[in-house]
Design a protein around this nucleic acid. Structure first.
Lengths: 337, 337
DNA sequence: TTGTAAGCGTTATCAA
DNA sequence: TTGATAACGCTTACAA
């Protein structure tokens, strides 16, 4: 960095550019919107001064004047979740070409933290919000009502969405996977759960229904700890302790499932012969395992893309129906069940 | 009362609150800063009206008036990288209690995308920036110079930082790991690289030096594709094709390493007997493998924490020295080398 | 083609 | 303890 820090470090404004060009800031403003709006002779001068000063536009005045930021707030449960990396890819495929900037916030599956993050994003006057939950605090609901901006709740298919929703039926997906395991003759299947967020609970419902429908007793082994690979091994050991004849585990996600599969193999169990293992989300790790991990294939990128598309239509003033979109799922039986 | 006859619902401002309380907006502003600054009788009234209207503060006017947002921009190479999840944890441990909000942007290890994202964050008037690269485009450098805000470049230890830097010596870390593999008698070690970002290249340097120092010929198997687990298997197969007597792979990260280890075992190779495998970052996946994955332990959370701490000191007007902090690394030999 | 004035929501400053 | 005023940077509406 150079001497520019000697004087009061104020970044250049339109007025600064105008002063050097010897015109008014309106001319510069026009030039920025469309260079052809100003005289040709002036265009070159403005361009030169802009480059010289390194002018950076500010969207703050526009936020103030029009309560518009051309930014979309995106709430993610966690920044390290592969699942949401795909969702974000889908979102940006739509928002970027439309000239919208995404502001990301994460809340660690915590409702109060979600509330604070939403407040922050609203204080930046985001034009719309994408939420990764369907349950919110009372104060969050109030803020969203007052802000009156378009919203999409993603991942699930709530009965009464705040505004719009794009997701899939996690209970049905879980049930389908457990059914597939049962169809292969497994009888003593446990559900390995972590973090106990809402979608983990929805999958627990699906698991429970499938087991009960088959006349079997559900066994849920759970922890509040966040998911990781080693936790899969820990939960598997606990499940075997509680149910020695265990012959299958349906896991709330692929990290837990991969950890369980690796731990089972390390303990000398044959997968799927002695133990079937299934996960959720069909992440890459499942493809690197031998046998390949059975998993629920979720349309994450499509969810992000549709959510963003619906939001842009709402921002353009369109009425969007239906409010809730179910993008479905598929079952990849891999080689582990 | 606000005249709401001809305007569509607008979110309440301080003036709206003031009108209902029957006072001026300055009183409300004071109440928000510290309730004791207003008469006790008024406090209760204000609280009631605030709750009724669901007032949401706006930081936009303050951004405009003081060019201060109390927000710190954080540039992440990718949103799905576990490594940066730890870094972010370290950052927020410091920024949250200090009342700063973090705005995250990601650029997929792409310099031009970094440029656009920095421009966006600057247009929101972030008070400081955390960058995850040490090499930037000319226009980025210009914008950062003009913005004249505190900066930290994290992860590496650049010779001439833009402002501040907190990281570690990736070449030295790679060299140490390869030395450990050589010390265990391995001679035909390849480096498996992906995405070819700067830190991958720095580790390649360290690998190359260790091999040459040992009088051995380096073999780098690389791809521009982003890392994932299956890619580790692909790169391993290519390395064995090029070097049939291969007896070790040092991988640019743990995803590649885990994939290579799993593929080796699937091919019937004994790890580490027939093939040593080492990664970088000591992520949880390595602990779930059998044998446990050898890896470079990087102080990610500490990097984030120190970066944020230095930034806050700069924002408080302090002069911070030294400019560059090397937080070191450790070698976990696990059971795979 | 270019310029002027007003206004967006908040806080610092000064006045009462 | 409270209020009036100005200022921040830009765009819209209107004027020249």
């Amino acid at each position: 960095m150079t001497d520019s820090r000697h004087e009061k470090p104020r970044r250049p404004t339109l007025q600064d550019v105008a002063d050097r060009v010897g015109t008014s800031k309106m001319t510069i403003s026009r030039y920025l919107r469309d260079p052809r709006l100003v005289a040709e002779a002036t265009q070159a001068q403005i361009a030169a001064v802009m480059a010289e000063l390194g002018y950076i536009p500010s969207r703050v005045p526009d936020m103030l004047a029009n309560a518009k930021s051309r930014a979309i707030g995106v709430l993610l449960p966690s920044l390290s979740n592969q699942v949401f990396a795909s969702v974000v890819r889908g979102i940006e495929r739509v928002t970027q070409p439309a000239g919208y900037h995404c502001l990301y916030a994460h809340y660690g599956y915590d409702m109060e933290r979600e509330e604070r993050q939403i407040e922050q994003l609203l204080s930046f006057h985001v034009d719309a919000l994408i939420l990764s939950e369907t349950v919110h605090s009372a104060r969050t609901l109030r803020m969203l009502e007052v802000a009156a901006i378009p919203l999409v709740e993603i991942m699930e298919t709530p009965d009464s969405p705040l505004d719009l929703a794009v997701g899939l039926d996690h209970a049905a997906a879980a049930q389908a996977m457990v059914d597939a395991m049962l169809a292969r003759g497994k009888r003593h299947i446990a559900y390995l759960a972590a973090r106990m967020d809402r979608r983990t609970l929805l999958r627990a419902d699906g698991y429970r229904q499938a087991m009960i429908k088959a006349g079997l007793t559900p066994l849920i082994v759970q922890t509040d700890a966040p998911s990781d690979f080693t936790l899969g091994g820990t939960l598997l050991r606990e499940a075997r302790r509680q149910l020695p004849q265990l012959d299958g585990v349906f896991c709330t996600n692929d990290d837990i499932a991969a950890g369980a599969l690796l731990a089972a193999q390390a303990a000398g169990l044959h997968v799927p012969g002695e133990l079937a293992v299934a996960g959720c989300n069909a992440l890459d790790i499942g493809q690197a395992l031998t046998p390949r991990l059975a998993s629920i294939v979720t349309p994450r990128e499509a969810i992000g893309e549709l959510a963003a598309r619906l939001l842009l239509r709402r921002l353009a003033g369109e009425t969007v129906t239906p409010a809730v979109h179910d993008l479905g799922f598929a079952i990849d039986t891999g080689g582990s069940i």
